[in-house]
Design a protein around this nucleic acid. Structure first.
Length: 460
RNA sequence: GCCGGCGUAGCUCAGCUUGGUAGAGCAGCGGUCUUUUAAACCGAGGGUCCGGGGUUCGAGUCCCCGCGCCGGCACCA
């Protein structure tokens, strides 16, 4: 069927070329978007001619009239071609256009008897001939496999999907704006790294031919950003892709987008404030309310968020006094899934936080928090460890775990230690997984719904 | 990696339990129709039923293997 369909369209392409029409032409200049063209009419009966361009999505022929919906980057506008205006030949050419074709049209805007704001086609130009059939106009494209593999079809067939990705961009732009406004500078650090540090995750390995050595794709942004604080930048951030060689799930894509920021002379209390600001600014950027819901569950993102020490939460939910990795394990198993409203979980065990500053009153714990909403983490931050002697000891402890077979233990990074030995100012830092943030704000159930081209196995 | 569900026309879906060699709507094709809005009406088409094997006189349907997708677990601050 596809073969037959495409053969017919290809024959049409040849016929058009033979008739002197370029089915892949250019030079059409739209004067208005579909939205702007519709807005132009106001209360008037007719406007002067405008030019719009886009893809034909629906066609309805009524004898000497053809109605069609033209979709552009902003929305849709109805077109009406009239045989008695265009003449037989041009009208025939318009009626011969296919769904999926990209066309430029010119003419005045008016209102039909049914009240639909419509462009009366005075002239038109085929810009791009489409060779493949569009998904169904009413049900759209539902098959998730095609939606993810051929996102271009998903985007052109399902307007809500375009809105999600537009919102994603608006959220990230707003977060950048917030940080820029506060004096953070937007930097770029290496994706290809000798030592994949700053987190606990299995890295992707690659190879540089000319250097003749293996490199890793970064799993986090942290260690290079802190080097920049050593260099004298006092507030830095990066929005960047990181890569973790782990399983896939509705919450995990092997590559995802992380925002990390570091602020000299700040601590994790400041980062909590910043986290709240980022959540609020994200919801606003996407035009979503703070009192909202995710997959049907009510959630209120209005600050201030509850703050609880991890040890207190574990005691409350399990009745157990615990410390170290056991505390963290108990928290993750018994507490985190039950934290539904936004909660800052404070003061992690030092054993699971090799880059964070110990609490002065109890060095078994560090000044670290994670922001948990609906059982999921949205931010991870600490008052950074600035003592190079302690940092070296932490790395050595991690190296021992690594030697004992823990592949996710933090690797030794001598250059980072050297930087810290020059002097890292006291600072707070935070990381926010932006994909999951967009999922929350836009109420999307899968990370694949907020990543344009998620990782898939090969077809066939 | 393990467990479960799913895979039928370009798209959205029936048919599978109770085997008898495939159906609808939209899209496409041919025709009628000058203000339509999921938009009509008439007509003729269109399928390696994910792939491979097996059981059977006969498999879209039952069994086995494989592939892909979805979900859960494992993994994953």
């Amino acid at each position: 069927m596809t073969e037959e369909f495409m053969r017919e369209r290809l024959e049409k392409v040849h016929r058009l070329r033979a008739a002197g029409v370029d089915p892949y032409s250019r030079g059409f200049q739209p004067t208005h978007s579909s939205e702007a063209a519709k807005a132009l009419l106001g209360e008037a009966e007719r406007t002067p001619p405008v030019a719009v361009a886009g893809r034909l999505m629906v066609k309805r022929q009524q004898g000497g009239l053809v109605f069609a919906d033209l979709q552009d980057g902003h929305g849709r506008i109805q077109l009406m071609a009239n045989r008695s205006i265009l003449g037989d030949e041009e009208f025939g050419r318009f009626a011969d256009l296919d769904l999926g074709d990209i066309v430029g049209v010119s003419g005045p805007i008016f209102r039909t008897k049914r009240g639909e704001i419509t462009l009366e086609v005075n002239s038109f130009q085929l810009l791009t001939k489409s060779l493949r059939p569009l998904p169904e106009k009413w049900h759209g494209l539902k098959d998730v496999e095609i939606r993810y593999r051929q996102r271009y079809v998903d985007l052109l067939a399902n307007p809500q999907v375009r809105e999600v990705f537009r919102a994603r961009t608006q959220i990230i732009t707003a977060i950048r704006g917030l940080l820029d406004e506060r004096g953070f500078i937007d930097v770029e650090t290496p994706v290809l790294q000798e030592v994949p540090g700053g987190g606990h995750a299995r890295p992707f390995q690659t190879h540089h031919n000319a250097l003749g050595r293996d490199l890793y794709l970064r799993i986090a942004l942290e260690l290079h950003l802190k080097r920049l604080l050593v260099g004298g930048f006092e507030r830095v951030y990066e929005v960047g892709r990181v890569f973790r060689n782990e399983g896939l799930s509705p919450r995990h894509n092997p590559e995802f987008t992380l925002m990390e920021c570091y602020q000299a002379y700040a601590d994790y209390e400041d980062m909590m404030q910043l986290a709240e600001d980022i959540l609020v600014c994200s919801a606003m950027a996407a035009n979503r309310p703070l009192e909202t819901s995710y997959e049907g569950e009510a959630v209120n993102l209005t600050p201030p968020y509850r703050r609880e020490r991890m040890a207190d939460l574990v005691l409350e939910y399990t009745g157990k006094h615990a410390a170290g990795e056991e505390l963290n394990d108990l928290f993750e198993e018994h507490v985190q899934p039950r934290l539904r409203q936004p909660t800052f979980v404070l003061d992690y065990p030092v054993e699971v936080s090799p880059l964070a500053r110990p609490r002065e009153d109890d060095p078994r714990f560090v000044e670290r928090f994670e922001l948990v909403i609906l059982g999921r983490e949205y931010a991870n931050a600490f008052t950074e460890l600035t003592d190079p002697i302690d940092q070296r000891a932490r790395f050595e402890a991690q190296a021992a775990m690594r030697a004992a077979g823990n592949v996710e233990a933090h690797p030794m990074d001598e250059d980072f230690l050297r930087a810290v030995e020059y002097g890292l100012p006291p600072c707070g830092g935070m990381g926010v997984g932006l994909d999951r943030l967009v999922m929350l704000v836009m109420d999307q159930p899968s990370i694949r719904d907020v990543i344009l081209f998620p990782v898939m196995k090969p077809e066939a």
